[in-house]
């Protein structure tokens, strides 16, 4: 189980799922993404954060 669905929680969950484990991702707000989802562009690559 992963508690918190920001970029860290999403990454941990996908790594574990890809590696063959069943994962529960628990997020307290109505959508995953955390702070990163509200950033405009992100350093150092300047990609849009979505």
């Amino acid at each position: 189980m992963v508690v918190g669905g920001g970029i860290a929680g999403i990454q941990a969950s996908t790594d574990l799922a890809d590696a063959g484990f069943y994962v529960y991702l628990v997020e307290s707000s109505s959508a995953i993404g955390g702070v990163m989802a509200a950033l405009d562009k992100t350093f150092p690559t300047n990609d849009c954060s979505i």
Partner: peptide, 29 residues
């Protein structure tokens, strides 16, 4: 633990830690 809860950090470090904690969990499971 993974991400900024371990200490303030930027996205690349959060992603790295997340991979790391996934490995730790995988070792156990």
């Amino acid at each position: 633990v993974a991400g900024a809860f371990q200490g303030p950090k930027a996205i690349p470090d959060s992603v790295i830690q997340a991979g790391g904690s996934a490995a730790s969990a995988a070792e156990l499971l």
